[in-house]
């Protein structure tokens, strides 16, 4: 599987409170949540993001609250992949569980600039910054996680193995 899109770049410790502020958590509706995605970090993001775009961030992306509303908002607003230097543990788990592709790659996270055209190949783990021509290699997921992603998330994975 391969995705490509324009990069939106942010810093370290992007927490789930800025990804989807608690004032919007009075609904589980992903469409509604998506309208406020990243609002407290970048109020213009939700209106600028285009289908397929890629989020790029530094260390510890998704730290804080376990709200699955955060990866759901990111996925529903059209983001095709999140590349970060590292992910916070619960966010990492949640993203895989709901089928939002994420890639840990410190080099790519440091080099990619906002607006660059970026492509990610999940089979090879190769990230390409098509604007600068640079490529980066990310760790492939362990087999168990690959199965989970291929199944399209935890529910499908669970049903398949029972």
């Amino acid at each position: 599987m391969k995705v490509s899109g324009k990069a939106h770049v942010y810093g370290d410790n992007v927490d789930t409170d800025v990804i989807i502020p608690a004032r919007y958590l009075n609904t589980p509706d992903a469409q509604e949540l998506a309208q406020h995605c990243l609002e407290d970090l970048d109020a213009t993001f939700a209106s600028r993001v285009a289908r397929g775009d890629i989020l790029v961030a530094g260390r510890n992306f998704g730290c804080g609250s376990s709200r699955e509303h955060a990866p759901r908002a990111i996925k529903t607003c059209g983001v095709s992949c999140v590349i970060a230097a590292t992910f916070a543990r619960i966010f990492y788990r949640n993203a895989l569980n709901i089928g939002l592709p994420i890639v840990e790659c410190p080099d790519a996270a440091a080099a990619i600039r906002a607006g660059d055209a970026v492509a990610v190949d999940f089979d090879t783990g190769v990230i390409t910054d098509e604007t600068t021509g640079r490529t980066f290699r990310s760790e492939p997921f362990p087999p168990f996680m690959q199965e989970l992603i291929a199944a399209g998330g935890l529910a499908a994975f669970w049903r398949a193995r029972k």
């Binding site: 804080g64 609250s65 376990s66 709200r67 699955e68 990866p71 619960i90 788990r93 949640n94 569980n97 709901i98 998330g153 935890l154 529910a155 669970w158």
Partner: peptide, 23 residues
Amino acid sequence: SHTCTYGALGAFATGVGSTDMAA
């Protein structure tokens, strides 16, 4: 995420998301 509080009681307790909760 603050499910880890119960570690004070010598339990393994950890925060997860809603899909994990459903599972």
